[in-house]
Design a protein around this nucleic acid. Structure first.
Lengths: 339, 339
DNA sequence: ATATTCTACGAAAACGTTTTCGATACTCGT
DNA sequence: ACGAGTATCGAAAACGTTTTCGTAGAATAT
């Protein structure tokens, strides 16, 4: 038996008006106890649930939040989603997810699709291509329409919105400082190309830490990976041609690739080369040896982003035009790859 | 400047009726070319986009599909989502994701929230708790209302719907057979508790392969993990107390845990013990040694599930009451953990 | 000149709610 | 018995669309 049950159907069956049914179900004192019960029993019997589309249209809010991320098969982003979903659900919101696949065009299209009333606000991390182009017109259009955005991780400063990030410079600093304190003095870093903020900023912190300790910073200490899917050869060359006693990698993948290349060449981790990675994901926990990492707290970031967005949504009346940038603390977890 | 632009606003500004605006934008011949152009220019200038909520209400379809999975920080499920999103997007659908967290109650709640008009159909994989309770009333309620469901991986047979699975029995068989052909004859399997279908079925295929080759199947060859988060001790005991020359694990995590325990005990992989895992994820590719796995083709499963659901949605008129179970081929990829 | 067909537009219903505003009939106080 | 108050309900608008139908005037045909 198909047939969704609606107020109208109930009203017809029970020979009362639609408004009476609506009021009865919301326990209005305008309706007599007897009719109230009659209607509520009928509704329960046929498992009536108000149609959320109709409610959205009436209330001009959907109780849904849109998330746009570059990739989902990616530990960090998956944890962020998990955090977003957790707090959104707790507050009665649902989460619509779209993937940009690191493509600017797809990011724009997805954003337009969602901005037409489907959602109340955005949580997003920019695609690589968007970062490269520095074209943010689609974001501006959305904010101009009064729809709030919360950005995380890969953010831009041209758009008025809340942001949730980690202090990448400080984290890069911490990674280098950690190794220096362990007595290492020939450090290398494997990073991404510069237009990816997180890579650039972590490298910058790394460099600062070295300079503060009076080290000269040489070019050969920096490897910038262009194509993350084909990084093995570049990393292998980098770690073998230079005589490092320690390495920082801006993600797990670079770290474990370096680790394996070094072990293949007969080096011992951490005795010969110590390694600190970013993103405390599953690889770090299960690699051999396990990797010391600086966690990005994706779950926490997602939760904070969702909380901030919902806060903005529900205080919309008082034109809250102040924006905040939350900096989430990183946490270094020591494992076998450092002494 | 906030203010969403609507048909009504355009009609007021241009001093025509709402219906005229609607028709003009859809290029109806009922409207003269001049007014059509006037309206279309105005609409483009103010970047008019039809409100999707209003359309959903009118058309009685949302062009959204709901996905319920147990966890998203999980390689297999993330790849499925990725596949779902890819084909759904291509066909003009959006994806709403909710997580059950392996909890029956949350699965029910999420399902009810989505079933009230938010979406046109479901794609889902059951939570562990649901599998254990064998309580599917929430699924039945949804299908009874005429909303189609496509289930994948963790499915149940009590509900009339399309399904997308891998042939777990055949895959378990293949894993065992592969090791037997390599000359191994002391095989063990690390699986999950029996109410998780995939674990049970893979174990069954494993057992059949051994029996067909004339082996006695002993209890000590089977380990069934209850708590996946604290499996290390159980796995370590299992692999060290028995004298296996090869192991099958129903997921990457069990496999790499076993691998590390064995190596810690001085065994060589694959010389002393060969390992075949399920789920061709990131761990298998980066573990040491890398793991031979039977891939679950999550991306493909997700794509197929989405395609089948959308097909059902768009042929709804002819009461298509036949249901199909698609069996996706697994693919064994050989790596270092087998000789 | 009259009847017919086009052309170009508007009115209204429908989708499922909630809410405001009446409206009816009854009770009560005087 | 009459006005005021109360209890109980219904009509209608609104959210933003699309679509069916109606209609006015103009053009054409007889």
């Amino acid at each position: 038996m198909p047939q969704k049950i609606t107020l109208k159907k109930i009203s017809k069956d029970l020979k009362v008006s639609v408004s009476t049914v609506s009021k009865a179900l919301r326990d209005s004192h305008e309706i007599s106890i007897e009719t109230r019960d009659r209607i509520k029993n009928y509704a329960k019997k046929f498992n009536y649930k108000p149609n959320s589309i109709a409610l959205s249209l009436k209330n001009q809010k959907t109780k849904k939040i849109g998330v746009i991320i570059p990739e989902i098969v990616h530990y960090f982003f998956a944890t962020v989603i998990s955090g977003v979903e957790r707090v959104a659900n707790k507050k009665g919101y649902q989460v619509i997810i779209t993937l940009s696949g690191e493509s600017f065009d797809k990011e724009v299209v997805n954003m337009e699709m969602l901005a037409n009333g489907s959602i109340d606000g955005f949580i997003m991390s920019l695609s690589k291509e968007t970062m490269e182009k520095q074209d943010f017109h689609h974001l501006r259009e959305v904010t101009n329409q009064g729809m709030p955005i919360v950005m995380f991780d890969r953010v831009c400063n041209d758009i008025p919105c809340d942001k949730v990030v980690i202090d990448d410079v400080a984290a890069g600093h911490e990674a280098a400082e950690f190794l220096l304190r362990k007595g290492r003095n020939k450090l290398g870093i494997i990073s991404t190309v510069d237009y990816v903020n997180v890579g650039r900023l972590r490298s910058q912190g790394f460099k600062e830490a070295l300079q503060q300790r009076g080290f000269d910073v040489e070019n050969h200490q920096f490897l910038k990976i262009e194509d993350i899917d084909n990084c093995e050869d570049a990393i292998e060359d980098f770690v073998l041609e230079n005589d490092f006693d320690s390495l920082v990698a801006v993600n797990e993948l670079f770290a474990v690739t370096a680790s394996k290349a070094l072990q293949k060449a007969g080096k011992n981790i951490p005795k010969d080369v110590a390694i600190v990675a970013f993103t405390d994901g599953i690889l770090s926990k299960y690699a051999s040896p396990t990797l010391t990492t600086i966690g990005q707290q994706g779950e926490e970031m997602g939760g904070i982003a969702a909380a901030k967005l919902i806060e903005k949504l529900e205080s919309k009346h008082l034109d809250n035009e102040s924006y905040e940038t939350v900096i989430v603390k990183t946490s270094l977890v020591e494992r076998e790859s450092t002494p």
